[in-house]
Simulated scan of single mutants.
Amino acid sequence: MPKYVLWGTYCDDVLEKRAPYRQAHLDGLAKQKESGVLITIGPTKDITKVFGIYEAEDEATVRQLIENDPYWQNGIWTEYSIKEWIQAF
């Protein structure tokens, strides 16, 4: 199954703005991880970018997961890109 890399950007004042949506966001990610579609995800140390790796049937599936996430729907993630990834090792 193909793998996809997510790079996204967080809004300004992310630590304050994410608070109302954080638990729903984490719960959704946990479900994705349990299902096997989410390999890993997390912010950069400076909390300006988010990086993730997904394993899914197609890019549309990954886009749907991202766009249904409370962080995307509430402007915590402000933009994202997805690239299909070839894992060499």
Rank of each mutant, 00 (worst) to 15 (best):
M1E: 04
N68A: 11
G28M: 09
Q23L: 11
Y71E: 05
K17Y: 07
E16Y: 06
E67M: 13
D46N: 12
T61I: 07
A88E: 10
V14C: 11
R18Q: 10
Y71N: 02
Y71P: 04
F51P: 08
E79L: 03
T48K: 15
Q73H: 03
C11S: 12
Y54V: 03
I39V: 15
I86A: 09
H25K: 09
T78R: 07
I82V: 09
P2C: 05
P70G: 00
G8T: 08
Q32Y: 15
P20V: 01
Y54R: 06
D27E: 14
I47R: 10
E57D: 10
E67N: 07
D58A: 14
K33P: 04
K33S: 15
P43K: 08
A60W: 12
D58E: 06
T9E: 12
V5L: 15
Q73T: 08
S81C: 10
I39L: 12
R22W: 14
Y21S: 04
L15K: 09
K17M: 07
S35V: 10
E67Y: 12
L65H: 11
N74A: 00
Q23E: 06
Y4K: 01
R18Y: 09
A30W: 03
T44M: 04
K31R: 12
E84R: 12
P70I: 00
A88W: 07
A19P: 01
S35T: 08
K3W: 13
I53R: 01
E79W: 12
W85T: 03
H25W: 03
K45P: 14
D69S: 04
A30T: 08
E34A: 15
Y71Q: 07
Y21C: 01
A30N: 04
I41E: 06
E34F: 05
S81I: 05
P43F: 04
L26Q: 05
F89Q: 13
N68W: 06
L26G: 01
Q73C: 00
F89T: 14
E55T: 06
H25F: 07
N74K: 02
D27T: 06
V5R: 03
Y21K: 01
Q87G: 11
I39N: 11
L26A: 13
W7M: 15
Y80W: 07
Q64K: 15
E57T: 08
T9P: 01
Q64M: 11
Q73E: 10
F51I: 12
N74T: 06
N74G: 00
D13V: 06
V50L: 12
L65W: 15
S35M: 06
W77Q: 02
K83W: 11
V14S: 10
V5K: 06
I66K: 00
C11P: 03
A24H: 15
R18A: 06
I39Q: 08
I82D: 03
P20A: 01
V50T: 14
G42R: 08
W7G: 10
P20Q: 02
V5M: 11
W7Y: 15
A30D: 13
K3E: 11
T48W: 04
G8F: 04
T40W: 10
W7S: 13
V5T: 10
G42Q: 07
I47S: 05
E55K: 11
E59F: 01
E57M: 07
I86K: 07
I86E: 03
I86R: 08
E55V: 01
T9D: 10
A24R: 07
P70R: 00
L38E: 02
Q64D: 15
E59N: 02
F51R: 09
D12W: 12
T44H: 11
W7P: 01
I82S: 09
W7H: 15
G8L: 03
P43E: 03
